[in-house]
Structure formats: structure tokens, C-alpha cells
Design a protein around this nucleic acid. Structure first.
Length: 469
RNA sequence: GGCGACGUAGCCAAGCGGUAAGGCAGGGGUCUGCAAAACCCCCAUCGCCGGUUCAAAUCCGGCCGUCGCCUCCA
């Protein structure tokens, strides 16, 4: 078996064959930076990070580019409201976003191009399109001529005539065709503008990604991705521009992730039903979000509720249980052999699932089987190389999904201040147990529990942790 | 109105023609002074109605319901 990917363009799952053997280029459409990013953005970033990690795991050299839209109507409006400079505002949210990505354990891209720094490439491309008859000027604007592009609509499955019926597009009588979209917008007073052969202005939304992608990754990328809300019009228009410009297929595989749903609706800035990444991370770990997302399939919507997050947290605790140290000293024998075989099976199952269009849910099922095998082995007294190898495999495969399986931050925080006092109480309780003073010992444990400290007695002695609020 | 996706146990969710993965929650047991954790066991015929097939959750048709896109959006 080898990797297969669902391609939005063909609506089929296809064998993955990159242009250059062993090398993969990925371009993922990044956010427009004008407000705090929410966990829907995080979901897209996490999904494509997982795709990337798996490709690397399979030995590909991956060149990963994701952009920032830092020139845009919404940025300008927001900046005006706050009396700030648009680019300064965009830079602020872009660096915030980069911080979020780090916190979510998303690997950094090789490059984060920004519209404001790619103007030469953008205007050159528009000029090229105009020369080929795919674009026309209109009162300082430049539009793409959709009727000139014979296969326009192939990604989203919309025919040009159909798109017109029942559409809510404001008819702009000046345009040749209602579906024509702006490549360049002439400058209006008070707006940031760049000089160009068409006069001062700024790029339309779609052209930037085409230009940056062509500039940094060449005429044909292997994987071009983003949220499924970008299929139309954004990616449809990217294809139209890019292929009209180069005469070549723009992207080999189009991948689109499903939306995060809050209260049964897509989470979005315009609907206002959002949880920001900061809000989420104040109460939960990055692992919890990554696991919640990986539990489903990337093309389907993810249901976000207090209950599904809580479930993810508990599942995570179970995954971590596989990492606890061995207790016995049986390095060989039947139980050890059983564990060794389980590791082989789990790895094969994990790869088989991931090869099938990144079936992370199946991959996680394999992880849980490994956890059970490890815990079972530990209970059976297994230790030594096989036990270590099993745990190492768990770490490694979890890592492909971007899961770190670190103990909760709350416990780490306790190490600073409360640790000596808690240890003191735990020791006193230990003495009480020695003296068979069960009632007092239980009182200490119950009191600690009430304060959020959970105490467990294990063969290796007591262990405690602080529950996150 | 057009294009598309989806409906699997209390919840989340794989499977996509050969007789239902996994997790959470729940029940029983082992261990434990008692717990907790861990381990063992139990817990669904797949929205509804027809059809194709030796065989369907999986294919086809109809119906009901949910969601996304068609406007900025990951």
C-alpha cells in the first residue's frame, strides 16, 4: 500500500505521485490577519501540519509554504476603526498567529510570504494575463475575464450560467460578465496603495495566492490546500488565473478540510460564534485540540462542544498512561514477545490508516491498541528493551499526529510553588497509612482532592497531579 | 433556486459489497485497607421506504433530516 489522497478536483481518491520523486511542494492558504485567530483556523493549520508530518515520516522532503493576507478590505476597515496603520495591524496579528502555531505544536513553514512584499510578482502576473487577453482594465481596476477561460468552474462544479441564476452577487453593470473578478483594485482616498502599470491600487484577493505560489513553488505544486469554504470562489479563481497564465495544471492535488462546528454551525468570524485559540489554550492543551480533530476525518466537519473537548481530554490521559514506567523485570518471555508483536501490528495498522487519505481516526485506534498492549505488558511484569521500544513507538507515532503527550501544564506549574507542601502532606499521609490510621489518611487524600490534587497509590509509591480547572 | 457533503450505540467516530475499529460515558470483575489508575469482560445491525445481489451500513432510486458553498471566511 502507498499513500492515496482525495483530490477535490477529480472528486476521487488517487495514488499520491509527486512531480519529483521523494519531494513534495505544499501551498496552504493562510489567514487574513485582522483579528484573533479562532480554533477553526487552528484546525486547518493542524490538519495540514499532520499531512506534512506524515509525508516527512514517509521519507519525503517537504517544501511547505503558507501565506498571510496582509492587504485586504477588512484589514483596512479594522485599522481605520482603531486608528491604526493597516500594515502595522496586520503584522501584529500575523505574529500572534505565528505564536499560536508554535503553541499548537504546528511545525513552522519554510516560508510565510505576505501580499505586501510580493507586489512585483503580482503586477507582473496581472500584466501577463492582460497580454494574453484574460484581463481587462476598467476605471483603474483590472478584472479577470471568466468567459475566456473555457474550463472555468471545474473545481467547484459550477457552470458559468448556473452561477448566475439565484446568485447574490451585486451586479456590476460595468463588468463584461458578472463572474469576472478583480485582479487589481484602483486606489481610493485614504487606502494603502502600490504603484503599478495599471495605476495606484492593490491586488484583488485571489491573485495574491496564485502569484506567491508560482513565485515560491514553481508552476505546478503537488498539494494545494485550505478550508473547503475556499473552494469557491477563491481556489476556483486561483486555478483560472494560474492556468491561464502558465498554460499548465496549477496543482496536482487539491485538499480541503471540513469546518469546525460550534452549536451546529460553522465557526466563523462573521457569525461571531467562535472560540479563539487563546481562549481554548487557557483551559486545554494543544494535544486536546489535535486529538479532537484527529478523531474525525479531515474532510468532515468536527463537532465542538464542551462534551467532545472533555472526551478528548480523557482520551489523552489514557494515551499518556502508556508512557508510565515499567514495574516488573521480565525482559523476555511470553508477555514480552506478545508486546513485541503488538508493536509491529500497530505500526502497520497506523501506516495503513494514514495511507488511506490520512485516516487519522483509524491511526488513533491503532495508538490505543498500543497503549493497551503496553499497559497490559506492564501489568504482566514486562520491562526491558521490548517495553522501551513499545513506548518509543507510541511517542513516535503520536508525534506524527503532532501529539506531545506531555503531562498537563498544571502539574508543571505546581512544581514551582506548591510542590514541597503537597509532598509534605503526601508523606504525612504515608506515615498515617503505615500506622493504619485509615480515617486520617483518607481525610488528607479527600482534602487534597477538594483542592484539586488527585492522589493515587501505585506499586512504585504515591503519585499526585493537579487537575486543571 | 444551483452545486456539494453528511445521517453508524447516551456522546464523538472509523468502516464504503462478505456479515459493525477505536475513544468517552455506563455495567460487572481482578487488584487495593478503601479509593484512583491499570488489567479482564459486557454494551449498536448502521435515518426511513423500496430495489440490485448468494451476500448491503457499504451499490441504485425515493423520502425525511442536518450541514457547507453560491458574499469576506480555515
Amino acid at each position: 500500500m502507498a499513500l492515496r489522497i482525495y483530490n477535490t478536483l477529480t472528486r476521487q481518491t488517487e495514488a499520491f505521485v509527486p512531480h519529483q520523486p521523494g519531494q513534495v511542494t505544499m501551498y496552504i492558504c493562510g489567514p487574513t490577519v485582522y483579528a484573533d485567530a479562532h480554533i477553526g483556523h487552528a484546525m486547518a493549520a493542524i490538519i495540514f501540519d499532520t499531512v506534512r508530518r506524515y509525508l516527512v515520516y514517509q521519507g519525503y522532503a517537504v517544501h511547505f509554504v503558507t501565506n498571510f493576507t496582509d492587504v485586504d478590505d477588512k484589514i483596512i476597515r479594522r485599522a481605520r476603526e482603531q486608528g491604526r496603520d493597516p500594515l502595522e495591524l496586520a503584522n501584529h496579528y500575523a505574529s500572534e498567529y505565528l505564536r499560536h502555531l508554535r503553541e499548537l505544536n504546528v511545525l513552522p513553514a519554510d516560508l510565510y510570504p505576505r501580499v505586501s512584499q510580493e507586489m512585483a510578482w503580482i503586477t507582473a502576473m496581472i500584466l501577463g494575463l492582460e497580454e494574453k487577453g484574460y484581463a481587462y482594465r476598467l476605471d483603474g481596476d483590472v478584472y479577470f475575464r471568466v468567459t475566456r477561460d473555457e474550463d472555468y468552474g471545474k473545481l467547484s462544479g459550477r457552470r458559468l450560467q448556473e452561477a448566475l441564476a439565484g446568485t447574490r452577487i451585486e451586479e456590476d453593470a460595468r463588468k463584461e460578465h458578472p463572474g469576472d473578478f478583480a485582479l487589481w483594485k484602483g486606489a481610493k482616498p485614504g487606502e494603502p496603495a502600490w504603484e503599478s502599470p495599471f495605476g495606484a491600487g492593490r491586488p484583488g484577493w485571489h491573485i495574491e495566492c496564485s502569484a506567491m505560489c508560482l513565485h515560491h513553488l514553481g508552476e505546478a505544486v503537488d498539494i494545494h490546500g485550505g478550508g473547503n469554504d475556499l473552494i469557491f470562489p477563491h481556489h476556483e479563481n486561483e486555478i483560472a488565473q494560474s492556468e491561464s497564465y502558465t498554460g499548465k495544471a496549477f496543482a496536482r492535488y487539491w485538499m480541503h478540510n471540513g469546518m469546525l462546528q460550534l452549536a451546529g454551525e460553522k465557526m466563523s468570524k462573521s457569525l461571531g460564534n467562535l472560540v479563539t485559540i487563546d481562549q481554548f489554550l487557557r483551559e486545554h492543551s494543544a494535544d486536546a485540540l489535535r486529538l479532537l480533530i484527529a478523531t474525525g476525518h479531515y474532510r468532515k466537519p468536527v463537532v465542538y462542544t464542551a462534551e467532545t473537548v472533555e472526551s478528548a481530554e480523557r482520551s489523552l490521559a489514557r494515551l499518556r498512561s502508556g508512557l508510565r514506567p515499567a514495574q516488573g523485570r521480565e525482559s523476555t518471555g511470553e508477555a514480552a514477545e506478545k508486546l513485541r508483536l503488538a508493536v509491529e501490528e500497530v505500526r502497520a495498522g497506523f501506516i495503513e490508516a494514514m495511507d488511506d487519505d490520512f485516516n487519522t481516526a483509524g491511526a488513533i485506534a491503532a495508538l490505543f491498541e498500543l497503549v493497551r498492549a503496553i499497559n497490559s505488558g506492564r501489568a504482566g511484569g514486562v520491562s526491558g528493551p521490548f517495553f522501551q521500544a513499545a513506548q518509543q513507538t507510541l511517542r513516535e507515532l503520536a508525534g506524527v499526529l503532532g501529539l506531545q503527550l506531555a503531562e498537563p501544564a498544571a502539574e508543571a506549574a505546581a512544581e514551582v510553588a506548591a510542590r514541597p507542601f503537597i509532598d509534605l502532606l503526601v508523606n504525612v499521609r504515608g506515615d498515617l497509612r503505615q500506622a493504619r490510621q485509615w480515617a486520617l489518611a483518607d481525610k488528607v487524600r479527600d482534602s487534597l482532592k477538594a483542592l484539586g490534587v488527585t492522589l493515587e497509590d501505585t506499586p512504585a509509591g504515591p503519585r499526585w497531579k493537579i487537575e486543571a480547572e
